[in-house]
Amino acid sequence: MALVKDNILLQLVRGTLGDQITIYERNGQIIMAKKRGPSKKKPTKKQLEARYKMKIAAAYAKVILKDPVLKAYYQSLAGPGQNAYNMAVKDAFRSPEIQQIRLEEMDVVVTAKDEFRVAEVEVRVVDAAGSILERGKAVLGRNGVDWYYKTVGLPPGGKVVVVAVDLPGNGTIRELLLA
């Protein structure tokens, strides 16, 4: 590997030359290196999981971009050098985050965030024996982050189970134990 300094010709060149040398830029420095070939090592379990997740994300992006409304939504979020496909893959790669579950009188208030959009939040009230007493979809509040669900009752020793789902269908589950 060589760092290139003050070479007018190589200031404009990027890519592979003669299937032997690769020229690229990283952190503002031009680097010349021997062209890498495919790895001879067996991929790790984490690498295989990441590849599978990326395959699913790419498949989602291809399907979802057939919907003109969602394509326009993702395109509106794209920055310079990005497109709707890039944004859809990025959205499919990450699950939403449930930051907080709190109780306000008979309301369950869920703070859920996603880099793009949380599509829905489902709330289940479960008793101490594990039976579901009630379930339903929460309603998005005015602030765009808090979701509200009005409960009939909260059983002592039970729990509130919250499932947040984003546009690609990635779900995150979090529980709040009731005293």
Rank of each mutant, 00 (worst) to 15 (best):
G130S: 05
V162S: 00
V118R: 00
M32S: 08
M1N: 09
L77Q: 09
G136M: 01
G136Y: 03
A129N: 06
V123T: 03
P168M: 08
V69G: 04
K42H: 06
D6Y: 12
I23G: 08
I98K: 00
T22W: 05
M1G: 13
K71P: 07
M32L: 13
V162R: 01
R135V: 02
G171A: 07
V163W: 00
Q47C: 01
Y149E: 00
V118C: 01
E97G: 01
Y52A: 10
Q47N: 08
E25R: 13
V121N: 00
D166W: 01
K55I: 10
Q99I: 04
G169F: 04
Y60D: 05
N86P: 04
V165Y: 03
M106N: 10
A58S: 15
E134C: 02
V161A: 04
D107P: 03
V89D: 07
G141A: 11
M32T: 11
V152A: 06
Y85W: 12
M54I: 11
M32H: 09
A57Q: 11
I173P: 00
R14I: 13
D146F: 01
L12D: 15
K55P: 05
G37C: 06
V161T: 04
G15S: 09
V162L: 05
K113C: 01
A72S: 14
V110R: 02
K159S: 07
Y60W: 15
D127V: 05
E175R: 04
A119W: 05
T111W: 03
I64A: 08
K90N: 09
N170M: 03
Y149K: 02
E175N: 05
P80I: 12
V125G: 00
G28Q: 10
K66G: 10
L65M: 12
Q100C: 05
Q11A: 15
Y74E: 05
Q100K: 14
A58V: 11
D146V: 06
E175S: 11
K35H: 08
K150L: 15
L77G: 07
Y52D: 13
A59M: 14
V123D: 02
K150A: 12
G15N: 15
E120T: 11
T111E: 12
I64Q: 07
L10A: 08
K62C: 04
V89G: 13
